[in-house]
């Protein structure tokens, strides 16, 4: 009986939290947008969450591309199919690894920072003081960060894939001796704009939305103590990683599952 009560209480709490999160999202994005004030704030946040994440994205992309070329080559060469290394690397990156790994890195690098920043703003009464100055913190603090995340993450994912393909070239062509012409030409022939590139971008937009939503909400909803903020930051990374992996399966099934 006890577990049944707990189950009910937990479900209600989750639903309530989801309600608060939706409420925050509407207040930040839907209600009365003020583009003139928003744009400079958003650009500043794009610098913080996007530009400052470039290094980790480029380095990870490079290494993942290199590892994939190495692994792919050792398998493909047995069948004399090492010419297909280009499309293998490109398709894996564009369809899956680009959006997913970028999202996971983004959640760790930018999402946690967003939660901690907003949580601390709450703890130091900055959000309250905005409210008392008749400035809506949802529009002033939350909305620019949401937009910045949604705009910058898909770009980061594309950069990740591009650097990864170059990394694959570095290992596959320059080191292991795959023919450069076939690396590029078979890739060009195989990769489809709509099916592969656009689907990858759609995925990363969805991930970006979910991660920034979770990150900003967790900060906004955190208990304003050091313990509460640390818990909120952890939850941001855990929840957004799980959400990304779960959504990735659903999106993949929708995009590629049913022909």
């Amino acid at each position: 009986m006890k577990w049944f009560i707990n189950l009910g209480a937990n479900t209600l709490n989750r639903l309530e939290m989801f309600g608060r999160a939706t409420f925050m999202l509407f207040g930040a994005i839907v209600a009365k947008p003020q583009p003139l004030k928003m744009i400079p704030l958003t650009i500043k946040q794009i610098h913080v969450v996007g530009v400052q994440s470039l290094l980790i994205i480029v380095v990870s992309g490079l290494f993942i591309g290199m590892v994939m070329a190495l692994q792919g080559y050792t398998i493909l060469v047995d069948y004399g199919a090492e010419g297909s290394l280009g499309p293998m690397v490109a398709l894996s990156l564009l369809r899956e690894l680009g959006p997913v790994v970028t999202a996971l890195l983004f959640a760790g690098r930018a999402g946690s920072a967003l939660t901690a920043e907003i949580g601390l703003m709450k703890a130091t009464e900055q959000l309250s003081s905005l409210e008392m100055m008749a400035v809506d913190p949802l529009r002033r603090v939350i909305a620019p960060r949401l937009w910045a995340g949604i705009i910058s993450m898909p770009m980061l994912a594309l950069i990740f894939s591009a650097v990864g393909i170059l990394g694959g070239h570095l290992v596959g062509v320059d080191w292991l001796g795959v023919d450069s012409g076939s690396y590029w030409s078979i890739m060009q022939a195989t990769v489809d704009w709509n099916k592969d590139v656009v689907n990858g971008i759609i995925k990363s937009i969805v991930f970006a939305f979910v991660i920034t939503w979770i990150a900003t909400f967790k900060g906004y909803d955190s208990i304003p103590t050091s313990e509460g903020i640390s818990k909120a930051t952890t939850e941001t990374v855990v929840f957004s990683s799980l959400a990304v992996l779960g959504l990735d399966f659903i999106l993949t099934a929708l995009m590629f599952g049913i022909e």
Binding site: T124, E125, Q126, S128, S129, M132, M133, D136
Partner: peptide, 19 residues
């Protein structure tokens, strides 16, 4: 409420300056 708040202001304990 937001209009009325422009006529009042509050000094928070921590100061609450934007860092």
């Amino acid at each position: 409420l937001f209009e009325v708040r422009r006529q009042m202001s509050m000094l928070f304990q921590s100061g609450a300056l934007f860092t």
